[in-house]
Write a protein that binds this DNA or RNA. Structure first.
Lengths: 198, 198, 198, 198
DNA sequence: GATGAATGAGGCTTCATTCAT
DNA sequence: AATGAATGAAGCCTCATTCAT
């Protein structure tokens, strides 16, 4: 049972290697262009090994996404100014999200692909019906609405007004349609704030 | 050249039938779930026939997108209040876009899939480098910036602030995550205006 | 529609070629040793072609068996002495069956494999519950029982007493455990008659 | 050599556990559906362990069959009425065989699968050329022929007339095509006797 | 001796594309 | 010009076997 931390590390290492490989290849080539064999090669494991860690290719894709989602949430929560004003919290979250994606374009591309696939749609629908939301952001919006600082619009719309543009500018930057810099990011997040605030 | 309008019509008819079939099936099942044979069946033509109108499956996909893009632009331009205020023109365009997609969810789903594929990215990049933009919307933004009505942000950002949320709410509606109605749409477009206006 | 008999023949030819190849290879190597690729090669068609005629490998196997079963029945019915005594009819059927299998050992081996596989078991059970039996033999047994010429045993047991040994001697001959000749076959069928007759 | 009986027992125990697991799983699912890993799990040993007791999967299968064959013979010989008439000895053997299989359908299914596989055929041929037959039954037949009680047919045919139907009715019972009871079994074995006796 | 993670050849199936009719 | 049967490369997954621990 107690196999020593080394073995455990080695196990996790292999799993992570696979996830990383899947992330990279799917980000670059889409689900189309990401055969299991290619993922295995990139991860330096045999094809069969992937199936020790994931039941199927679908399972691998979902597993990879899960991993990213956790990271994203962690990133947004880091240094989150819980005690400051709604506006400051909003700007922090927006900024962080953009920062997270710009720092790792591959993750962005993967997430985008995922959201636009049967996987993503099924998952989102599941989330909504089970009321599993990512808490702090929701809290912020609801608090803001109560204090009449934020427009009285459905949560879903507020999300769209906030994340729609931010995702969009990340995409433009990452695909090199337009190059972002700090001031522009700040001004864009502020513009999003203008959209949601009263 | 003119071999009689009937033949020409028949040709176009067949082509359109194919495009329509591709649109439907790709929208419903994604690129994955849209084999050429299935498209051919839906279009009531033989597989080989598709290859008389399109060089390859990729070509068919791009051709289908071209067709939609033209329609979208037409829709936005219909009853465009060219002589009214920037704000009114903005609201019109936003409203129209949402209306267009809600009226034909399949087209929305196709367009989304397309944008998130190698096709879409390549195409977008090509557009930008060739400065082929869709005119009236650009004009509106530029005029607004000059008149200091719209924020002095790059065009690309203004686009993101406008279309990002609108696309997002369409998606939510179409995948039945959240049901839109006229007042909500209006208020959302206005919120987008708040984001871009000074 | 009327494509001419030649095209139709050609279609059937290809299907039959595939069935023949499946028969041969499965007979020789068992279901294990009969990959689709090998069957395709033997039939001189591409792998994909097989899937135009059969939905899956299972379907091919069942289809091949169906084909053989029809042949077997035809063989038994040829020159069947419908108006002669029960005994003569019994001896005819037994003889014919053995003759059929000895003439084409491969068919025997295929049939044996089939009966001893999930396919065969499922099929047999289905037959029984749907009361689809191969008529003339059943008729003969029932007539014999009524006339008190044949033992009053369930049909299923009479079948076993008749076909059990015959199949067994075919197997022995075909696998070259023991070489049959006409007199021995005759005497064995007669011995089977001794088993079922009163 | 004698490292203590405990270790030896433990060794044999493990081997038997593996054989038992192989028997069960192959009987239930066929050779197809019996991966080594599954057998290992059922036997509560590691995959690698199996390879300490058997050179290969094939070897395991053959080993399992050997084990069963010994059991079968033992079963037939139990209470064998060596001093009674040929007929009584025949009926005893037949009855016993059916009893053995009905008592453990899994063993029957395994044996059937085995006989219908390359393993079984090779083995049978080997047996015959080496004249390794299962003694008492042979003895009985030969004695019967000499005393002109049993038909003067080759041993191989007598075997077929006896075991062919019995195996067949076991199969029907086990696959639930037809339910046997004691009287029917008795009458069937007697019918087999009618087939072989003069 | 025992373990079970890792391997990778090989199986089944799909589907874009071609070409004889 | 239209048809659709044929092709075969390529995808996903399984599983007998090995070997470091």
């Amino acid at each position: 049972m107690a196999t020593g931390s080394q073995l455990i590390m080695s196990k996790n290492d292999k799993r992570e290697e696979i996830v990383q490989a899947a992330l990279e290849i799917i980000a670059e080539n889409g689900f189309h262009g990401a055969p299991i064999v290619m993922i295995a090669e990139r991860a330096s494991v045999a094809v069969g090994t992937i199936y020790r860690y994931f039941e199927s290719k679908d399972d691998l894709v979902v597993g990879t996404y899960d991993c990213l989602e956790r990271q994203m949430l962690t990133s947004i929560m880091t240094h989150y100014p819980e005690l400051r004003s709604i506006r400051e919290r909003f700007l922090h979250a927006g900024h962080r999200l953009v920062g997270y994606f710009l720092a790792s374009p591959m993750k962005f591309r993967f997430v985008e692909q995922f959201h636009n696939s049967p996987y993503g749609v099924a998952r989102h629908r599941d989330r909504i019906s089970n009321k599993k939301g990512n808490n702090i952001v929701i809290e912020m919006f609801e608090e803001g609405r109560q204090q009449q600082i934020i427009k009285d619009l459905p949560l879903s719309i507020l999300y769209a007004l906030t994340f729609g543009p931010l995702i969009e500018i990340c995409r433009n930057h990452i695909f090199q349609f337009y190059e972002l810099d700090e001031p522009i990011i700040t001004r864009t997040v502020e513009a999003c704030w203008d959209a949601v605030r009263r």
